[in-house]
Simulated scan of single mutants.
Amino acid sequence: MTSTEPHYGDFLRLQALLSLQRELPDVHDAHFFFTVHQAYELQFKIILYELDAAVVAVRGDDIPRAVYCLRRVRAMEDALVAQVGTLETISPGSFAVLRRTLGGSSGLQSVQFREIEFLSGQKDPGYLDRLRMSEAERIRLERRLTEPSLWDEFQRLLRRLGDPDLVELYRAEIPDNGLARLAEAMVDHDEGFGLWRVRHVAMVERVIGRRPGTGGSAGVAYLQSTVERRFFPELWAVRTLL
């Protein structure tokens, strides 16, 4: 007798999910390249989900929940960093063939990646003009540009708490203040995303050298210019003042 209970594949919608990968008969690495980037977008989706939840938690003064969500964000970013190494299994020669099939597409066009930046507080309206995107993606990015970021909500939380001196909170040898733990969880996120940027630069240079990137980007030169970006520079600066 056949069971009508949903099974593992039903819950995960595997039939649909596993039908989305592209293959090019003459380019062996195409299947791998496209699948890894799809996996990145799924991981970006998780990060956005947790960042959204953290923003709501901070807005509601629920610091433990915000820290809980941000711990997962950092764990996902560690996974992103580790995954970069898999792309280095593509030889420079193989990618030279593969990139001819990409047209004007580029990872720099990832709208979810820009959403993470905007939601964290690093908002650049110029991306609305520079990115190739669908109308639905544009609407999402415009919404992220106007809605409060994690940094905005953190600053509002500080005001609600009477603008405590973060430097004094950080002087504790073992911080047990909830606000300090939240600040450190935000720095963890900032650091994790920054480590991905650094690791990504090295991978791209290893695969394409100093050639221009796909989609007309400047390639490694552009990526290197983003390495020093910080979501929360004020939280990094606190350490200098101790």
Score class of each variant (00 low, 15 high):
Ala54Phe: 02
Trp236Ala: 14
Thr226Trp: 04
Pro64Gly: 09
Glu234Tyr: 05
Asn177Met: 07
Arg138Cys: 08
Ala221Met: 06
Ala96Thr: 12
Asn177Ser: 13
Leu157Glu: 09
Pro148Asp: 06
Ala136Asp: 13
Ile47Gln: 01
Ile139Met: 12
His28Ile: 00
Arg144Lys: 05
Val84Asp: 01
Ala66Met: 02
Ile208Asn: 03
Glu142Tyr: 04
Phe11Ala: 13
Ile139Glu: 15
Ala172Gly: 10
Ser217Glu: 09
Thr214Gly: 02
Glu184Tyr: 02
Val67His: 02
Glu5Ala: 13
Ile116Asp: 03
Ala54Asn: 06
Tyr40Gln: 07
Trp236Arg: 13
Met203Val: 06
Ala218Leu: 11
Val198Tyr: 03
Val84Asn: 07
Leu87Gln: 01
Pro125Tyr: 12
Gln112Glu: 14
Leu241Gly: 05
Val55Ile: 15
Ile208His: 05
Ser217Cys: 04
Gly178Ile: 03
Ala57Arg: 08
Gly104Val: 05
Glu205Met: 03
Ala221Lys: 13
Ala185Tyr: 09
Leu141Val: 12
Ala39Met: 12
Asp190Trp: 03
Glu41Asn: 10
Leu179Ile: 14
Ala183Asp: 00
Phe193Pro: 01
Ile174Asp: 13
Phe118Glu: 02
Arg138Leu: 04
Val167Glu: 14
Leu20His: 10
Pro64Ile: 09
Gly60Gln: 15
Phe118Asn: 05
Gly209Thr: 03
Pro175Gln: 06
Gly178Gln: 15
Ser120Arg: 00
Thr89Gly: 07
Gly162Thr: 08
Arg71Pro: 07
Ala66Val: 08
Glu147Phe: 06
Met1Ser: 14
Phe154Gln: 01
Ser106Ile: 02
Val36Met: 11
Phe113Arg: 11
Asp152Ile: 08
Met133Glu: 01
Gln15Asn: 14
Ser106Asp: 02
Ile139Asp: 04
Ser110Leu: 06
Leu169Gln: 10
Tyr8Met: 14
Asp190Gln: 09
Glu205Ile: 09
Ser225Cys: 10
Pro175Asn: 11
Asp152Gln: 10
Thr214Arg: 02
His200Ser: 11
Pro92Arg: 10
Gly126Ser: 12
Thr4Arg: 15
Val167Thr: 15
Leu24Phe: 05
Leu18Pro: 00
Gly85His: 12
Thr101Val: 07
Met203His: 04
Leu98Met: 14
Leu195Ile: 00
Asp61Ser: 15
Glu77Cys: 13
Pro212Lys: 06
Glu142Met: 09
Val201Thr: 09
Val97Thr: 12
Ala82Cys: 04
Leu24Ile: 13
Val187Lys: 02
Pro164Ala: 13
Glu88Tyr: 09
Val67Pro: 03
Pro6Ser: 10
Leu166Gly: 11
Ser110Gln: 00
Tyr222Thr: 10
Leu169Asn: 01
Val204Ala: 10
Ile90Leu: 15
Asp163Ala: 12
Arg181Gly: 02
Val81His: 06
Gln21Val: 10
Ser91Gly: 14
